[in-house]
Design a protein around this nucleic acid. Structure first.
Ligand SMILES: Nc1ccn([C@H]2C[C@H](O)[C@@H](COP(=O)(O)OP(=O)(O)OP(=O)(O)O)O2)c(=O)n1
Ligand SMILES: [Mg+2]
Ligand SMILES: [Mg+2]
Length: 983
DNA sequence: ATCCTCCCCTAC
DNA sequence: TAAGGTAGGGGAGGAT
């Protein structure tokens, strides 16, 4: 309770976090440290380093990732806990058992007698460990029955040099009540072929050995772990025999076995045995992934082109008008800025081209285009049909590619498949580049996504670093989804490597069998493995996948949910990140079992309604979410929090312009326009030193301001004006800026139907404006436009006129009956006749509206305007002040102009002219009587001049200053308090 | 009550 | 050297 009250204050969470991780060396890593300390204290602690700076930590709070890399730690810990729990339970039941297998960790390969289940039980009961997946660094012995010769070769490469021992070794050891040497039990074929193996093995596998059970002959000296590991992984002697293709084949052939025998049995899987052998023969396993692209490529040509609008900013269309682009900096030496915004005029584009997070962050939009929601796709309507009218159990499959980024690029390095490999931009052992993905051998060393490469290298000096290949990720993701959609029409994409399937309605299909089929197809098509979880809801399916990884699948039956969750660390639940974990830890809650002890009321009191409910449900395995197609997006944005360094306002403006271009292109790529714009700034904290991460943002305050405009737009110039305006709200030294983002929300689709709507609203607006301009300004009604197609802002009272403010505090004086236009707008109007248009209104339209309108009239509008201009100043009289709407528009435009730079203003003569026209009109305000009360004024213009100087600011100010004092005061007072102060 | 802005948290 | 993005859910607190 006290914890989340900290939310109310800005600094609350930061302080909280700081206290959590006073020892982080990575200013982004923060709270994950506490976790890491725990799970792998020594190495990780050293890797991350002791960290003195409490301040260093919260820096990258938006770094969702700070903690992400630790989930595998959690998973392992979870399994560990389960294992320990089971082991201790078992021990309790048979207190006489001795830890015969202490230090022994087996992996059962394929069919054995006794079964892997039984072997597992023996291990549990006698102090050993049982690995559900193969890891050369965790497994000490592979247990395997004699195999046909054809399989020996595979085993050899698969085993990576570990002892391959017959199951009777376990049985005999149990019978003897001590650990026997495994040497006599070595698999015949291997023993005869590889006489030298045993020497190697013996040195490598000293059972971890508290000397109590030293009876075994095999127990040689305690060779150091490091030495052993190094030997094992650097010595290619064993692995090189295995062809990569064979490895693939082996994986394929055995994945059924693994599913049934090992992974499945691991914890949860129902011992259903029927489906496993039913799996198809692998015919085309050898068909290389390289030849697989054909289908999808020809269909659509999946490609990741950061240059494409929807992916990233388009290149080459920028003039870099940064005249002083020479890299001289006051604070930073040239070398320091080479990779910053200061060193690269094309920074934004290049940055996004290389950003992995940008890739995964924008993937969803590309998916939307590639797989437009299918007509038969299930819409995720929250129809609470849940009344269990469905007697049939729902069946959900969650499927996720194993170490996706590594798996894809490792295909061209088959010799590396069992070596520790990670994908990263840099191989610099001192670098702060981040690991994107690490394969499972690398994870055995504690290497995780998000970690600095130097820390990863410290954990594993021979870690192999591979480069990104975004195009390949895109392509594999595409194949992945092609397969999923082929089997199921209820697919919910989670990310480029992960999805949920609702297979409830696929009757006659065993979900587990289906999952194995899909996994196999994925492997055959892509050469990459995927893991799957099957359960009755999304939550449990996802958890099952974690258990199943890598290259496995796991079914959690409803009966075993409780058992599964009881010891599960709460951090493993989706939705519980490091913050919630810490809060719960402070209440001594670490496992789902413990979480269940807390009442829902209590949780909702401490964690608020929704979160409390989520916690209560999830720790019980309850999840009411439905698998649905991707919903239409609610926001579009772009941000950069790396390499952002500015010297002066011009640097900043240049960057903001690029960001606007990027966002504009993305809006257009998504076919939407937006009305609300939010500018986010990361501001270096006063006490923050150099970021731990090279070119990183370090410890920052996160600031944001937003504004809402009346008409949705995707126009770069409009974005630019708005952005400049927003930037004015931050009274900030540009040298402190470490990150910038622009987000657009209140989106409106630009598809045909919406276009019609928009045009209608525009038309109605014009008509009603025109009509009203002939009445007297009529003030009545309460305008509250929720639908928001055309008006905006809130009524702020007043009789003769209403001062409205948009959310940012651009105050807009206008009459309430603005909404009349909107009232009509949804009813569909025919286009007003040209001659019915009020030219004064038309001329004062913002340029983008004008051009849109012009389109509606087939281009005749501009002609008409030209003619009306010829008539002299006649139109001026009606220009601004007969129509509140007109005034509104005029003021908005004037406001935009104020913050526009000279370049954009002069870009089109027509636009400039229009603005000047309006300004002229504004200057006549004092004379214009009744219409006067509908002037809009942007208050921030009053004191933005220092930050946003522009050629027009003086004009604006003078316009403002011409206002009667009374009105000015009125306007000022009507502004929200925080706006007034901030100015 | 409901909307709005400004945040935080989470996932990949 | 390095490329710490993107989007949704949700809540506090103020305005209406
Ligand atoms: N901090 C992170 C997390 C993920 N990713 C990218 C790389 C991953 O390959 C991909 C998919 O994320 P997953 O969580 O599915 O992780 P992996 O697929 O790498 O491993 P796993 O086998 O656990 O799924 O997203 C990243 O770049 N940085
Ligand atoms: Mg994955
Ligand atoms: Mg994933």
């Amino acid at each position: 309770m006290s914890l989340d009250s900290s939310r109310s204050a800005n600094s609350g969470p930061q302080n909280l976090k700081r206290s959590f991780n006073s020892n982080s060396s990575n200013d982004k890593g923060n709270s994950s440290n506490s976790k890491k300390r725990k799970s792998n204290q020594k190495t990780l602690g050293m890797a991350w380093g002791p960290n003195s700076l409490s301040t260093s930590r919260s820096s990258f709070r938006s770094s969702p990732f700070s903690d992400f890399g630790s989930y595998m730690v959690e998973k392992n810990r979870k399994l560990q806990n389960q294992f320990d729990a089971e082991a201790s339970n078992s021990s309790l039941s048979d207190s006489s058992t001795k830890p015969i297998f202490h230090g022994v960790s087996i992996f059962v390969d394929g069919f054995t007698v006794p079964s892997s289940q039984e072997l597992r039980r023996y291990m549990l009961n006698y102090g050993g460990r049982f690995e559900n997946y193969f890891s050369r660094h965790r497994v000490t012995h592979i247990i395997c029955s004699n195999l046909p010769d054809s399989k020996i070769k595979n085993i050899r490469s698969f085993s990576g040099g570990l002892p391959v021992v017959k199951p009777t070794w376990i049985l005999d050891s149990v019978a003897a009540k001590r650990l026997l040497s495994w040497v006599p039990y070595q698999l015949d074929q291997l023993a005869s072929n590889q006489p030298t193996l045993s020497a190697f093995f013996t040195s490598k596998f000293s059972p971890a050995s508290e000397g109590v059970f030293t009876a075994a002959i095999c127990e040689v000296k305690h060779a150091t772990e490091d030495l052993c590991l190094k030997d094992a992984s650097t010595d290619a002697k064993f692995s090189e025999e295995g062809e990569p293709s064979e490895w693939r084949k082996k994986i394929t052939e055995e994945h059924d076995e693994l599913m049934r025998g090992n992974t499945d049995s691991k914890v949860i899987e129902e011992p259903s045995s029927s489906y496993s052998e039913a799996s198809q023969e692998v015919k085309g396993v050898e068909r290389s992934y390289l030849e697989q692209d054909d289908e999808s490529k020809e269909n659509n040509g999946p490609q990741y082109c950061p240059e494409q609008p929807s992916a990233s900013v388009s290149s080459h269309c920028f003039d870099n008008h940064s005249i002083k682009g020479l890299p001289h900096s006051t604070a930073l030496g040239p070398s320091k800025q080479r990779h910053s915004t200061l060193g690269d005029p094309n920074f934004v584009e290049n940055y996004f081209k290389n950003s992995r997070l940008h890739f995964i962050g924008t993937w969803r939009n590309r998916y939307r285009k590639r797989f437009p929601s299918l007509p038969n796709g299930f819409k995720c309507v929250n129809s609470h049909l849940d009344v269990s009218a469905d007697t049939q159990k729902t069946a959900i499959i969650h499927i996720d590619m194993d170490c996706f980024f590594v798996s894809v690029v490792i295909r061209s390095h088959p010799e590396l498949h069992d070596k520790p490999v990670a994908v990263c931009h840099s191989d610099n052992p001192k670098g702060t580049a981040e690991i994107s993905s690490a394969n499972y051998p690398a994870r055995d060393y504690g290497i995780r996504a998000g970690m600095f490469v130097r820390d990863a290298k410290a954990l594993c000096t021979h870690l192999v670093i591979l480069s990104y290949n975004f195009e390949a990720y895109e392509e594999v993701a595409d194949q992945f989804y092609n397969i999923l959609h082929k089997h199921c029409n209820r697919v919910q994409a989670v990310s480029c490597d992960e999805a949920f399937l609702d297979v409830t309605d696929l009757e006659g299909e065993d979900p587990q069998l289906l999952a194995s089929v899909i996994r196999k197809e994925i492997f055959e098509a892509t050469g990459c493995t995927a893991s799957a979880g099957i359960a009755v809801n999304m939550l449990m399916a996802r958890l099952a996948t974690r258990t199943a990884k890598p290259n496995g699948q796991c079914y959690i039956s409803p009966e075993r949910v409780d058992e599964y969750l009881d010891q599960l660390p709460i951090k493993a639940l989706p939705g519980i990140g490091h913050v919630l974990e810490e809060k719960l830890k402070n209440r001594n809650v670490r496992t789902c079992g413990q979480l269940r002890m807390i009442s829902k009321d209590s949780l909702q009191k401490d964690f608020r309604f929704k979160t409390g409910e989520m916690l209560w449900n999830y720790c019980r395995g309850v999840d009411n979410r439905l698998v649905g197609t991707i919903q239409e997006s609610k926001s579009v944005g772009a941000e950069v929090n790396w390499g952002v360094r500015f010297r002066d306002l011009q640097d900043t403006q240049h960057f903001l312009l690029d960001l606007c271009k990027e966002v504009s292109l993305r809006l257009q790529g998504c076919g939407v326009q937006g009305r609300t714009f939010t500018l986010k700034i990361k501001k270096r904290r006063k006490d923050a030193g150099e970021p731990a991460k090279y070119m990183g943002c370090g410890d920052c305050e996160n600031l944001s301001h937003s504004t809402t405009v009346p008409l949705a737009t995707d126009d770069v110039e409009v974005l630019q004006r708005i952005t400049k305006q927003l930037f004015g709200f931050f009274h900030i030294d540009v040298k402190d800026i470490r990150g910038v983002g622009l987000q657009v929300s209140r989106l409106e689709s630009v598809d045909t139907s919406k276009q019609v709507l928009e045009r209608n609203s525009l038309k109605s607006w014009l008509i009603s404006a025109s009509a009203r301009s002939e009445e007297q300004c009529d003030i009545n009604g309460i305008a509250k436009d929720r639908v928001g197609t055309d008006t905006e802002g809130r009524s702020m009272g007043g009789n003769s006129g209403v001062l409205c403010t948009d959310p940012v505090g651009n105050s807009v004086l206008r009459t309430n009956n603005t909404s009349n236009g909107e009232g009509c707008s949804n009813q569909g109007l025919s286009i007003p006749l040209l001659c019915d248009l009020d030219m004064g209104v038309v001329e004062s339209l913002p340029s983008e509206l004008l051009s849109e309108l012009n389109e509606m009239y087939g281009g005749k509008l501009v002609d008409l305007i030209a003619k009306s201009k010829g008539q002299g100043e006649n139109s001026t009289g009606s220009l601004c002040f007969h129509s509140p709407e007109l005034a509104k528009v005029a003021v908005e435009e004037a406001e935009r102009s104020r913050n526009s730079d000279p370049i954009s203003l002069s870009r089109t003569a027509a636009e400039m002219k229009g603005k000047q026209h309006i300004l002229d009109g504004l200057q006549t305000v004092p004379d214009s009587g009744a219409g006067f009360n509908s002037i809009a004024i942007s208050i921030q213009g009053l004191d933005n001049n220092d930050l946003m100087p522009s050629s027009l600011s003086q004009v604006d100010t003078s316009v403002l200053q011409q206002l009667p004092e009374e009105l000015r005061a009125d306007i000022f007072e009507s502004l929200p308090e925080h706006r007034r102060c901030k100015m």
